[in-house]
Simulated assay, not measured.
Amino acid sequence: MRAAPLHLEAGSDVRLTLEQFARQSKATGFVLSVVGNLSRAAFACPDRPAATIISGELEIITLQGTISPNGVHLHLSFSDVDCQVWGGHLEPGTLVLRGADLLVGLLEEAARPTTGPRVKIAVLPGCPYSIRALRMLRTLAIPYLEIEPDGAGPVPQLFIDGVAIGGYDALAELHGRGELEALRP
C-alpha cells in the first residue's frame, strides 16, 4: 500500500473529485483520513428516495470507504454550527468550503483470476428483492452474472465463488460487515 495526499480546494465536489482521482490514477484503495470543512453536504440516508442536502459551515468529522476506477462507496459524517452530527452515504453535490485534506491509501494490484464475475445471482423480473440486490451490486461496482433461478427457492438466489449465500438479506448482511469489498475489481 502507498499513501497519497489529496488537497481539495474551495468549491470542489468531494465525491466527484475522488471518482476522478481513482479513474485518472487507475487506483483502488480507501480513505485513511480527512480534515476540512464543507459549505454543502449531500448524503443518502437508508430508505430515503432522495439525497438529504444541508448547507452552512459544516465541519467534516469522518469520510471513509473505498475508491476504484469503477466507482466509489463512501460514508460521510459532519457537524453543523450547533455541533449536531449528520451523516450517510456521500453523494455528488458535497462541496468544500475553504479546503479539505485527504489521505488516500492505494492498494497494489494483486494478481486476480480473470475467469469472470465471482458473483452469480438468480432473479425474477419485477421481484422487489431482486431489484434491491441488483441495485446494491451495481452501486458497489461488484461485477455479477445473472443466471436463471433453479425453481427450488425464493429469489434472489446469490452465489459467491459457487457457494450459495442466500437472498437479499444475506447480501445486505455481508455488505453491513464490509465483506463485499473484496469482490470489487
Rank of each mutant, 00 (worst) to 15 (best):
R2V: 07
A3W: 14
A3S: 15
L8E: 10
E9R: 14
E9P: 11
A10N: 10
G11I: 09
V14R: 10
L16N: 14
L16S: 12
L16V: 07
T17G: 03
T17F: 05
E19C: 02
F21N: 12
F21L: 13
S25P: 12
S25W: 14
K26P: 10
T28V: 14
F30E: 15
L32P: 13
V34K: 03
V34P: 09
V34E: 08
G36K: 12
G36N: 14
L38F: 04
S39D: 12
A41T: 05
A41Y: 05
A42T: 08
A42F: 06
C45M: 12
P46V: 08
D47R: 07
R48E: 15
A50T: 15
A50C: 15
A50V: 14
A51W: 11
A51Y: 09
T52D: 01
I53T: 08
I53K: 10
I54C: 01
I54D: 07
S55N: 14
E57F: 09
E57V: 11
L58Y: 11
I60D: 13
I61P: 05
T66E: 15
I67T: 08
S68H: 11
P69K: 11
G71P: 15
G71K: 14
H73G: 07
H73I: 03
L74E: 14
L74M: 11
L76C: 04
V81F: 09
D82E: 13
D82H: 11
C83K: 15
Q84R: 12
Q84A: 06
Q84K: 07
Q84V: 06
W86S: 07
G87S: 14
G88A: 02
G93H: 02
T94C: 00
R98C: 13
G99W: 07
G99P: 06
D101A: 08
L102Q: 07
L106H: 09
L107D: 15
E108R: 03
E108P: 00
A111G: 05
A111I: 02
R112G: 06
P113R: 14
T114Q: 04
T114Y: 04
T114R: 06
T115W: 09
P117W: 00
R118F: 00
V119R: 00
K120A: 05
P128T: 03
P128L: 04
Y129N: 00
S130N: 03
I131T: 06
R132D: 05
A133G: 02
L134T: 00
R135V: 02
R138V: 01
A141G: 13
A141R: 13
I142D: 00
P143H: 03
I147G: 02
I147D: 05
I147P: 03
E148G: 04
P149F: 03
D150V: 00
D150L: 01
A152K: 12
P154F: 13
V155Q: 03
V155T: 05
P156A: 01
Q157K: 13
L158S: 07
L158Q: 07
L158H: 06
L158R: 06
I165H: 02
I165T: 04
A170G: 03
A170L: 01
A172T: 00
E173M: 04
E173T: 04
L174T: 08
L174M: 11
G176Q: 10
R177E: 13
E179L: 06
L180N: 07
E181G: 01
E181S: 02
A182L: 01
L183P: 03
